[in-house]
Design a protein around this nucleic acid. Structure first.
Lengths: 115, 115
DNA sequence: CAACTAGTTGATTGATTAGTCATCTATTGG
DNA sequence: CCAATAGATGACTAATCAATCAACTAGTTG
């Protein structure tokens, strides 16, 4: 097993592909994006995140765990509270890129009907 | 239903979140990343992609369809062949960002054991 | 039109995953 | 030590999705 893509001349290990995909996948869920967006304003406790997003507490906790696993978010415990914050600043750029691209494609799509 | 996040002061519609997530999700699968990577060298037919990636033909076709739906890849039919190409150039930047971030975090992680 | 080639799609299976409830752990304050 | 609070987690359900085979469509060539 443990195959590699060699045919393209560029050795791109399955393992590395998995890691990149894992990062994208973490951002590929509306619920997690909602949490990330809430955290863009700064570090917040789970309770605050739950209140702001309207998510079920257990669900929020799971998704936050997922984001930590993906290296996107960091966790800090203080007393009874647990605070999460953006750990990987590139998510700002990633989201910007996607948002701009969506805007761009939307513009082009609507332009089709305006000559 | 049709709720919006208003508590954060920034109106971010569920619908928009879904669109962004959809874009990320398309890149959140190793198989699709493999296809995208293969297409980064330029437009290719399904057959060539199948050969280069080692994917099952039907499976490749499905994932390519998925990438088209996500606005990442474009499709062009010519005679008996169907050619796919990168449609949204931001995938280059997206992948670069994630790769750099992974490298960075890997560096920091290994640094923990080197003082 | 028949045979062939390239690619798509229906149907199915198995795996993964989001959401939820109830329970559990950890921390704080009385 | 007890009650209360914040958050995580086990167990479960339902939904989603990747992979595959077989059947199909569309275009080409004899």
């Amino acid at each position: 097993m443990k195959t590699q893509i060699k045919r393209s001349g560029l050795a791109l290990s399955e393992n590395y592909l998995d890691k990149v995909a894992h990062r994208f996948k973490a951002l590929g869920e509306p619920t997690r994006l909602k949490l990330v967006h809430a955290l863009m304003a700064g570090e917040k406790s789970v309770g605050v995140l739950v209140e702001e997003t309207g998510l079920n507490q257990a669900n929020a906790s799971r998704h936050l765990h997922n984001l930590v696993q993906a290296g996107i978010v960091a966790r800090r415990k203080d007393g009874n509270f647990v605070y999460y914050r953006i750990e990987d600043a590139t998510v700002f750029d990633l989201c910007d890129l996607v948002c701009n691209s969506l805007r761009e494609q939307h513009k082009q799509a609507s332009g089709l009907f305006q000559g």
